[in-house]
Amino acid sequence: MLYKDIYIDKPLDEIIPDWNYLDEKNIKKFFGFKDIGDNVCGIRTIERDDVVKPGQKSVPIALPAIRENYEIGPEGVVIVPRIPFSAHITRAGTPHRTQHVFGYWHINDKDEIIYTLPAIGEQPPQVIIIMGHPRNGETDRFAWYCDKCLTLLFMRESTDLATFWADELAAVRDYNADPANQICPTCGHKNPLGYSAMQPADRPEEREARLQW
């Protein structure tokens, strides 16, 4: 308490607007990815065990407890555990995907830090995602690899964070539009359709794909 003589005695809300992003009045701003300066951030609440059913009320990006997280590394596809009270850093350039949450591999030029928080008191389990704000041509990519042999099937890029979600949905729809995109040119495997992270945008066939992978 070295500074007890010069502490500010006003509530933090009065001196630092939005000082706690997890506060109820702020958290809704982080349902997608919010620009917070040098970083963009998303906060996801684990609301339910399984995938949202059509017509069920939910946040746009719903994380079911049953999901698995994957990355592609030198050894192929690996499951990345989400351990309570941990930080996982997905390095730039690493294709990564969350089962039932977004139906493509996200590859970005910025690192992502993922904090996993369990339920604490009345606070539900949460996942906080931080990544550097892409600038000056730094790119987000939406890619599909063959489920059987990891051949790259299809990829679209986005270099403007402001149009990230529009670019993401357009990439999904482009991939889904032509069945030839889903056939692996190496092994002939027929891969499932893609789907957006914004589950309210799902078409019926995309919702089927969300349940599948």
């Binding site: 500074y3 010069i6 502490y7 500010i8 933090l12 001196i15 630092i16 000082w19 706690n20 992003y21 997890l22 917070i36 300066g37 970083n39 906060i43 928080l117 604490i120 008191g121 606070q123 906080i128």
Partner: peptide, 15 residues
């Protein structure tokens, strides 16, 4: 000096 902490002990995520 401002102490950046929640008085009720809730989780804080702050820039």
């Amino acid at each position: 000096v401002a102490r950046i902490e929640d008085k009720q002990g809730k989780t804080v995520f702050h820039k």
